[in-house]
């Protein structure tokens, strides 16, 4: 008796839960839809333009690399698309197309592929591109179209106003405005609430865990709160700080990037703390109004060390008997 054809020889386990890289990447992309919807509502077709261009550019650049690479690169696995969406959320809605193209090239080539591609990069590709653009094109990257201002008026972000004009200038901005997106900023900066809603599904699927976002945001709250308590006349309230800028985007979607965040529980706590600490430090005392990107990139560099020196306790690490 013989089987019709050859029986498959394989190594255990033979079953699979059915997760895949594509599934994870496209799920993360989908959870960004609420935040993207808010930005389109606020900035209109400009937001759609930026989003479409960065997505096409990042996937296009990766496809080009895949074509000339010796290793097989699945440029449609959703990771390049996610980088594109995250990059779009980090730039102003009036960003010119060439700037977006440069950003896409930096993100995919310098941020990811030079390290060996997906899973090998040390720094978050979208953030590498954002910081590159911020340093290279400070003018374009800091004049933000105001939401609903279709006449083309631009302004600074609340954090920018705070940095340049002081505490008095932000008194009129309410917490509701911050949470809902009635403020100036990049596509992804403007609605903390929409980001939070989208990310709930990621928590549910365990694609992200609570440690990094909670500790990150908590640390920013505690540090800025301490200074606010010491001198409310000079420092903005911690509530203002956690709802402004890219903190929610950074804490929920950038710092939790699987590839560039630690694996262990303690590592995640320390990583979240570091991100929060440096964000607060830059916002309070640095020359840039916003510090989320710098803080995350800085902490990205520590991930291999955190993984190695703060591993989780293993089963059986008990005294004999």
């Amino acid at each position: 008796m013989e089987a019709n054809g050859v029986l498959i020889m394989d190594s255990s386990p033979l079953g699979r839960a059915g997760e895949s890289t594509r599934k994870i990447m496209f799920t993360v992309c989908l959870t960004l839809v609420p935040a993207l919807a808010v930005s389109v509502w606020m900035f209109g077709w400009d937001a759609v333009r930026v989003l479409a261009l960065t997505a096409v550019f990042t996937v296009g650049v990766e496809a080009l690399i895949a074509k000339f690479s010796n290793t097989k690169i699945d440029y449609l696995d959703g990771s390049a698309l996610l980088t594109g969406i995250l990059l779009a959320m980090n730039v102003p809605s009036n960003a010119p197309w060439w700037m977006l193209l440069i950003g896409a090239i930096v993100a995919v080539v310098i941020g990811k592929q030079v390290f060996g591609g997906l899973g090998q990069n040390i720094f978050n590709p979208a953030l590498v591109a954002r910081v590159f653009l911020l340093i290279s094109f400070p003018m374009q990257m800091t004049s933000w179209p105001l939401p609903g201002a279709f006449d083309g008026t631009t302004g600074a972000t609340p954090l920018g106003i705070l940095k340049t004009e002081g505490i008095g200038a932000i008194k009129t901005i309410g917490v509701g405005d911050l949470a809902m997106g009635h403020i100036g900023g990049s596509l992804g900066e403007i609605s903390a609430l929409a980001l939070l809603i989208g990310s709930l599904y990621l928590f549910y699927k365990k694609y992200i865990t609570w440690e990094i976002p909670v500790v990150f945001i908590g640390t920013v709250f505690v540090f800025t709160g301490a200074f606010y308590l010491i001198n409310p006349a000079q420092y903005a309230s911690p509530v203002f700080h956690i709802f402004t800028g890219g903190l929610f985007l950074g804490a929920l979607y950038m710092a939790t990037d699987m590839v560039t965040s630690p694996l262990s529980f303690k590592g995640k706590l320390l990583f979240g703390f570091g991100c929060g600490f440096f964000t607060a430090l830059i916002r309070l005392f640095g020359s840039y109004p916003e510090g989320v990107s710098f803080a995350i990139l800085f902490m990205n560099a520590f991930v291999p060390l955190l993984d190695r020196y703060f591993p989780d306790k293993k089963f059986g690490m008990v005294k004999n008997g």
């Binding site: 997760e19 890289t21 994870i24 699945d74 696995d77 591609g117 997906l118 899973g119 090998q120 365990k206 694609y207 865990t209 699987m258 590839v259 965040s261 694996l263 262990s264 989780d312 306790k313 293993k314 089963f315 059986g316």
Partner: peptide, 16 residues
Amino acid sequence: NPCLRCGSCLRVCPMG
């Protein structure tokens, strides 16, 4: 495929 460092394997390992 390349490891994403998603941490699923660490989470389910009964030996930690």
